[in-house]
Amino acid sequence: MSTLHTISKSPAKGLLSSCAPLLKQGDALMLLEDGVYYSYQNELDDLLAKGFEVYCLSEDLLARGPADKNLAESKLLDYEGFVDLCCEHDKLVNWF
């Protein structure tokens, strides 16, 4: 039983600090829309160090110009991959 959390707003809204304490072993995080800006930052390091999988919607990341940024180790997924990821987890919690 695992949950996929998604964040779709900019790190300035602070949603990661609300979401992160509620993650359980096996849960994962998907970043989309302005949430992809988390991948530019080291705020994700803590989650990654704890072994949580973090994914990033490639369409939204590419739209924003990630090329010369030192991205955190989130995995890129397109919409098809996002749908697959939803199927791999039992439910979603969407943070926006």
Binding site: T3, P21, L22, K24, K91, L92, V93, W95
Partner: peptide, 16 residues
């Protein structure tokens, strides 16, 4: 947080 995480885990769906 632990209790809320557990509520989420044990739910059919979550509205946030």
């Amino acid at each position: 947080s632990d209790l809320i995480a557990e509520l989420i885990q044990n739910s059919k769906s979550v509205i946030n």
